[in-house]
Design a binder for these strands. Structure first.
Length: 720
DNA sequence: AGCACGCCGACT
DNA sequence: GTCGGCGTGCTC
């Protein structure tokens, strides 16, 4: 009976294509093959085999099997799962899974072996060569060096037929971890956590744990012992440690080497293609047993993955925002589930999602107690705006202004954080009290002075700021109420005319390059005061930053960007880490009208549990993650008219679904990227809703015109 | 993603 | 009169 092979190709095709299996090829699932696709020949992977022929339409045949290590079944399931989760084609995650194979396999090396023939004349030098050659095949240079003779001696023996050329496979094996090394000394808290992880490993099957402990509590030692346990339990088991790309430093790798006697296998963007090939093959062969990598290491072809650790699991860089969009922390859990492995999420400031899972008992919650002398949060002060208010029409209170000027006088940097774009969040008429609102929602229009417009951040509606009140007709009566970053910048320039001041928001920074440039400039000390909505997003490290002023702490607690509060907390925790290491102590000042509020008290008291509880309550009330689910749909294109038309069509095609709300289209966070205008929809769904199903149905309903590109982003992280 | 087929401007 | 621009549509 002839067979049909389903072949998945690393391309944006909606599904695997069927090909006829040629007689005698005897394919297996996971095999790499080449297949004809239209006029060309493409590499793909066999994902299914079944009896049959093409039927009415004859199938093209698989051309040949490619001699690369087959993809293990877990990877194929994972690829499929990841595609559905991300509402994207399976070809993209497959392409990620094949990323180690772009470089050709290592070719065999030339080596010399003894033929058994005796040399016509024996010399001391030749004797030494014979002895050295006993060790096995060796390259001629290495043989001469081993024997301590010149290359001429070796060449003479080859000419005489005493040595012959053979080809040997290059030794691409990785050295094995030394599991006989003594474990590290752990404190009781660490030991208890390590013991629990060992028990979980011993129990086997998919399980998840949250390893939760402040900086300095020794999370790394704990998961290193878990790794040792996983490796020792089974000689074929493999361990994957995921780290944020920036954390993959030599110092971190050295800790692994110190524990296991060998360097771990590295996998990140800076690894060269030949090394990637080697790592990929080592992982596929089950021979690379400890892999330390960035998020894309998740797609490696592990055969017997027993432990996955996501260190700094709260870190925003685990969210891949371009190309194939995914959240590596979430996919790590999925991969572990597929492989029946233990997944450990580790952080000093866990994401609310993970804490929620821990609270619900889905993740085993391991809390490490702080070590003596561990870094504390920075000195956090609350400024009661009722007691020390700013001057009318100003937003920086006297204590904060003083702190900034002290930092300036010491040559240190300040960050003024206000999570609000534009100049003023509200414009109203002094004469009649009318608030300027968006026509189709009830939300306030935000004044932008850079552009002179009033903008609705939810729907994208915008209008020129009118001269007269549209309601009562009074002239020059429109007043800007409240601060945005533009207004705080204006005030800072007024207060500190000589300081170097920059603004970081999506209105001043349009693309990744701009963001990079501004962050670098800040890190290099070229900015004294950074007014920012966004800079805290990805945990940048500014060594000379000693003052963080939160202009409106109440705002970041009220919502807007759902992770604002979390990031504020993480920012402060990060400043704390520095305060412990530098001679300059970090300091945070939070301006608030409600210093008695639970979240602020929790921050001031450095009580994370109280902070989390309050934050959870707010998310729950707003139906935001983890209590509800979010997705963004971003459409972009060079032609604003075509883009607008497509967005309208997409809006009209919104499937009807219970428990799902769709907002937009509005201008996207980065409204202009490389000449392409961007629009965004936001989708909010209840947890019970099949969000991916909804999005897939929606995506299928509107044909995308050529000039427009659409991206579906499940669980988005960028909001500004 | 590639690559072909398909209809409208400046050139050996 | 042709060569070629890249718009759109398909690839088992």
């Amino acid at each position: 009976m002839p067979r049909i092979a389903s072949v998945l190709l690393p391309m944006p095709l909606p599904e695997a294509f069927d090909y006829a299996e040629p007689e005698g090829l005897d394919l297996a699932i996971g095999d790499h093959v080449t297949v004809p696709l239209g006029p060309r020949v493409i590499r793909g992977v066999v994902t299914g085999l079944r009896d049959g022929t093409g039927g009415n339409r004859p199938l093209k045949p698989v051309l040949e099997r490619v001699d690369d290590p087959p993809l293990p079944p877990g990877v194929l399931s994972f690829v499929e799962w990841a595609a559905r989760y991300s509402v994207d084609v399976p070809g993209w995650p497959l392409a990620m899974a094949l990323r180690g194979l772009r470089h050709p396999a290592a070719k065999p090396d030339k080596a010399l072996v003894l033929t058994g023939a005796q040399p016509a004349r024996m010399t001391p030098a030749r004797l030494k060569v014979l002895a050295a050659a006993e060790e096995g095949p060796m390259a001629s240079g290495a043989l001469a060096a081993a024997a301590g003779v010149s290359a001429g001696v070796v060449k003479g023996m080859v000419d005489e037929g005493v040595l012959a050329v053979t080809w040997v496979e290059p030794d691409t094996r990785f050295p094995q971890p030394d599991l006989s090394r003594p474990p590290q000394t752990l404190n009781p808290s660490q030991q208890a956590s390590a013991d629990v992880l060992s028990e979980m490993l011993a129990a086997g099957g998919f399980q998840a744990a949250l390893l939760d402990g402040v900086t300095g509590s020794g999370k790394t030692e704990v998961y290193l012992e878990a790794a040792a346990a996983a490796l020792a339990a089974d000689p074929d088991s493999q361990v994957l440690i995921l780290l944020p790309e920036i954390a993959l430093t030599q110092a971190v790798l050295a800790r692994f080497e110190a524990r296991f006697g060998v360097a771990p296998v590295e996998w990140h963007s800076a690894v060269s293609p030949p090394r990637r090939r080697r790592a990929w093959e080592g992982v596929a062969a089950g021979q690379a047993r400890i892999v330390v990598g960035a998020r894309s290491a998740l797609f490696l072809p592990f055969r017997k993955l027993r432990l996955v650790v996501v260190d700094e699991e709260h870190d925003g860089s685990f969210k891949q925002e371009e190309g194939f969009i995914y959240q590596a922390r979430d996919l790590a859990v999925a991969r572990a589930k597929i492989e029946g492995a233990l997944v450990v999420l580790a952080s000093a400031t866990p994401s609310l999602e993970s804490l929620w899972n821990a609270q619900a008992g889905r993740y085993r919650w391991l809390r490490l107690s702080a070590r003596h002398g561990a870094a504390q949060l920075p000195d956090i002060g609350l400024i009661d705006m009722r007691e020390t208010p700013p001057e009318p029409g100003r937003w920086l209170s006297p204590p904060l202004v003083k702190a900034v000027s002290v930092a300036l006088s010491r040559g240190e940097q300040s960050l003024l954080f206000l999570n609000r774009r534009g100049y003023a969040p509200l414009v109203l008429c002094r004469a009649c009290g009318e608030k300027m609102k968006s026509p189709d929602t009830d939300s306030w229009l935000v004044e932008h002075r850079y552009t002179g417009r009033l903008v609705c951040h939810l729907t994208g509606f915008s209008m020129k700021k009118p001269e007269a009140c549209p309601h009562c007709g009074a002239k020059d009566s429109l007043t800007s109420i409240g601060p945005g970053v533009e207004r705080v910048e204006e005030e800072a320039r007024h207060l500190f005319p000589d300081a170097r001041i920059a603004v970081f928001s999506s209105d001043t920074v349009f693309d990744a390059a701009g963001a990079r440039a501004l962050v670098d400039s800040m890190a290099a000390g070229e900015i004294d005061i950074l007014v920012a909505t966004q800079a805290a997003a990805k945990g940048h490290n500014f060594p000379n930053l000693t003052l963080v002023g939160v202009v409106d702490a109440d705002l970041s607690l009220r919502g807007g960007d759902l992770r604002a509060g979390e990031r504020t907390f993480q920012l402060l925790a990060q400043a704390a880490g520095r305060a412990g290491r530098h001679e300059k102590p970090g300091r945070a000042l939070l301006q608030t009208y409600a210093p008695e509020h639970g979240v602020l008290q929790a921050l001031k008291a450095q009580d994370r549990d109280a902070f989390v509880e309050a934050e959870m309550a707010m998310r729950q009330e707003a139906g935001l993650p983890p209590f509800g689910r979010l997705a963004a749909v971003i459409a972009s294109g060079p032609d604003p008219v075509a883009l607008e038309a497509y967005c309208n069509a997409l809006a009209a095609a919104t499937p009807n679904a219970e428990g799902v709300e769709v907002f937009g289209p509005a201008d996207a966070p980065l409204a202009l990227v490389r000449g392409r205008r961007r629009k965004r929809f936001l989708v909010r769904a209840e947890r019970s809703v099949d969000l991916q199903g909804f999005l897939a149905a929606w995506r299928a309903r509107a044909k995308v015109p050529n000039s427009v590109r659409v991206v579906f982003d499940v669980d988005p992280y960028s909001f500004l």
